[in-house]
Amino acid sequence: MDILDILLSASFWAAAIRIASPLIFATMGELICERAGVLNLGIEGIMVAGAFAGWIAVWAGLPLWGGVAVAMLVGMGFGLIHSILSVPFGLSQHVVGVGLTLLATALTFYTYRVVLPEVSSPPKIQAFQVYEVPFLSELPLIGPALFSQTPLTYAAFILAGLTAYVLYRTPLGLAVRAAGENPSAVAAQGLSVTAVRMGAVIVGSGFMAVGGAFLTMSAFDSFFFDMVNGRGWICIALVVFGAWRPGKALLGAVLFAAFDAFQIRLQQTPIGAVLPYQVFLMMPYFLSILALVVMSRRAEVPAALMVAFNKGER
């Protein structure tokens, strides 16, 4: 297969959008946290917990959207833990985040073994099916790519739009952005910086968990231990790449996913036969580092990111 053939095939773009979906959920979640001034390194563990929670809830008999809600609630629970430690207590966001990732991952694996002690391979669920949007899905190229996806993928794109709308067009969004830029100004308005930041971390963590749940409930139909595999860390890079803006971050996620879909297909070409497969698997991580390096010079970092706010302190 020729490289041009890959780029012009509808299945390639459909795969790119599918791969982008969990990243979009988690990237929006992280972006909300960071715009409010909190770096949430719990993302990797929260995605693991969300992937498991949504899947096990459906396995236990809940409808698919019920599973998504369970994943979201679990994510919000971990977000609550993170926000209590990082916001009112102002503990190091690096340490709290890494600790939360370890905790969420360990709790997930523990629960898995308690609930399913005797299984060698995890049970499957009836995952989200493709919903073809009437008329639009018949368009050439973009039809199969954008409008023949599962409902959760549509939800990811809606979430990106909603995040942008709330952040830039509502008083709530203004409060969130101000909490990340100039928390004293938020306090001067009589608002609680603590409440705004905690709320952002809790809601953002909920979206990260839904991103994880996409993997077990839409991309696949089962849960595996190393399923998230660094996607959370990649999303942190995507937030930086997107300069903390939902639109650019969405674009970054799709570009990144397109590259990922491309390297999978490239492995099947003559080039793939020459290079060891590990080189292809490394590419997403290299690309993330590259994105961080390229964007580091001109990124407009929220001024109060990682700065704890203690009222009355100047």
């Binding site: 833990i81 430690l85 207590f89 102002g90 503990l91 190091s92 340490v95 709290v96 600790g99 939360l100 370890l102 905790l103 991952t105 360990a106 709790l107 694996f109 523990y110 073994r113 308690v114 002690p117």
Partner: peptide, 24 residues
């Protein structure tokens, strides 16, 4: 005892989070 060995990982992660809070 048949309790998953991940109990150890949970204990260490909670010890980490609780310890940084206690030190503060």
């Amino acid at each position: 005892a048949g309790v998953p060995t991940y109990l150890a990982d949970i204990m260490l992660a909670s010890a980490l989070l609780l310890m940084v809070l206690a030190i503060l």
